[in-house]
Each structure stands twice: as C-alpha cells, then as structure tokens.
Write a protein that binds this DNA or RNA. Structure first.
Lengths: 138, 138
DNA sequence: TTAGTTGCAAAGGCTTTGCACGCGC
DNA sequence: GCGCGTGCAAAGCCTTTGCAACTAA
C-alpha cells in the first residue's frame, strides 16, 4: 500500500521527482533506513539525486508527522514511515536491524504526576533490545 | 555517594588521575552529561585532560556496564552513571535535558512470543518525551 | 510568475584513530 | 620494566548550510 504518496499529495506537499522517489523508497512495513540508504536506493532510480535533497525531504516528512526518526544507537538515525500505526521497536544489539512490534494490549502506563518534574509529557516510547536469530548464532 | 569509584577499584580498573576525575564528574543522580560536558568539567580540575581520553574512559565505563549511553535525540550522546538502579528517562524535546524516573510499580509488559521475530529479547527501555517547565513557558 | 526545491561543495558537530611519550601496577 | 593509558592532531562519519540554477503550481 502506498498511502504515503497519497497522503502527501492530499496535504499539498509540493511534489517533485526527487521527493516522490524518496517517499516511494520509504513506503512499506519494517522499513527503517538510514538517510544514506534512502539516498542509495533513490539514486538507483534517479542517479543525480543529492544527499542534501534527501535530507531535506526526510526532515520535512518528519515535521509533517509522516515519518518517525529512530535513534537506534549512536550511529546514523533511521527513518520509519509507519507513523500512523502506533508501534514500538525491537532492535538487534548485534547488527542494528529494527523490527516493528505492536502494543501488547495493555496501554502504556502513564507516568505518575509525582514523577513528572513539572514536565508536560506528550509521548512514551518503548524499545526492546536483544539479538536477532542470525546474530544469536555466533 | 561515590559507589562508582569504589566499584571501579574493586573491579581492578586501572586508575589514573584522568580516569578518576571522569568518574567523579559522572557520579550522582540525574547526571546526564555529554562527552563534551564531561570533558569541560574534568578540565576544571585537570586542565591538560584530552577529549580522546574522556571518550576512552566513557567507552570503557559503558562496556563495564557502569554507565549507560543515552541517545536522547540527534545530538550528542549523554552518559548516565545510574546503571545499577533500573530507571527510565524523561527527556525534554525543547532543550534536551534528561531526568530519571522510576518504574511505576507495574512491571514492564513482556513482549509476547509471536511478536519476537525469533529475537532473544534481553532488555526493554522506556523514554518519556515532553517539555520541561522552562521550555513549556515559550 | 514566483515561491519553493535542487545540486554542489564546503563547513560543522561529534567521535574515533594512529602514534610517540608517560605512568600505574 | 611492561603494558596500558594519555595527548595531540588528523581523519572520519553523519548532517547542515549557502547559493545559483531550476521547476511545480
């Protein structure tokens, strides 16, 4: 399903060939590419596309709330197009691969007021860590 | 309390003046400094200390499991010495400040087997996001 | 037409590395 | 004394920026 392109068009996102290719590359489930990987895949279809353009497009998609930025570890950020389906991440500590997992039915416990330090809390993010089957086989 | 120094000594961590200062700077609650901040504070006491040495020491403390690396956003990593007290983080989306918060009594829901994709899951990490009192006042 | 987008190349922030010197054990 | 730790400076990776040319609406 290519909801992403559709939604972007509906929201009046100025469409260019570069932006279209970026959105197409990101579309799908369990997609968590780095900016560089997005650039590489986009360049297969549009060889002249520049890294700066990819970063621009990614930054806008994040601002629009269509894509989520995932800081899996200390390396490059990954971009997750699954912004409209609430989910959590399962990250392999070995190779860094990311899978989407879905809330376990029990809603995320709210942070009690006495633990908020006066913050306005808007979001809770859960990350599971472990080893993927192939890294576990070491 | 300065458990950290004590524990490191017990574990046979080779002690030097630089490493001692790094450990001292990190010691305490709600401490979440960037490598650069650690370097700045260490340099107040030991002006010649180099950034590379601070990075080396931090890397080892993380490997030893005495300090946790926190990737708050896209900026510099922060280092949290509170590794022996399980806790979660509350991060300000405005200024990046981090506070420790403690498990809400209800244990972290386990990830059901059918959501594990064959991973060996060892850890679940929760991060709350929002605005701190001072950033909320914009 | 015209404001917004692109590509290039250069700069920037954070972190790591290579190597000679120095110091804890 | 041996081996690990340190400092320096340079390189590295990821990302952002400035600006002239271009293009979608």
């Amino acid at each position: 399903m290519s909801d992403l392109l559709e939604r972007l068009r509906e929201r009046g996102w100025r469409m260019t060939s570069q932006r279209r290719v970026v959105a197409e590359v990101l579309d799908g489930d369990h997609v968590h590419l780095t900016a560089d990987e997005v650039h590489a895949r986009a360049a297969q279809r549009l060889p002249e596309i520049s890294r700066a353009t990819v970063y621009n497009a990614l930054g806008e998609l994040v601002s629009l709330g269509e894509v989520i930025e995932v800081a899996t570890d200390g390396r490059a950020k990954r971009y997750d197009p699954n912004a409209h389906h609430p989910h959590q991440h399962l990250v392999c500590s070995g190779c860094g691969i990311v899978r989407d997992v879905h809330p376990t039915g029990s809603a995320l416990a709210d942070l009690p007021a006495e633990e908020r330090f006066g913050f306005t809390v808007t979001e809770a993010e859960v990350t599971y860590r472990g080893l993927c089957p192939s890294c576990a086989r070491t």
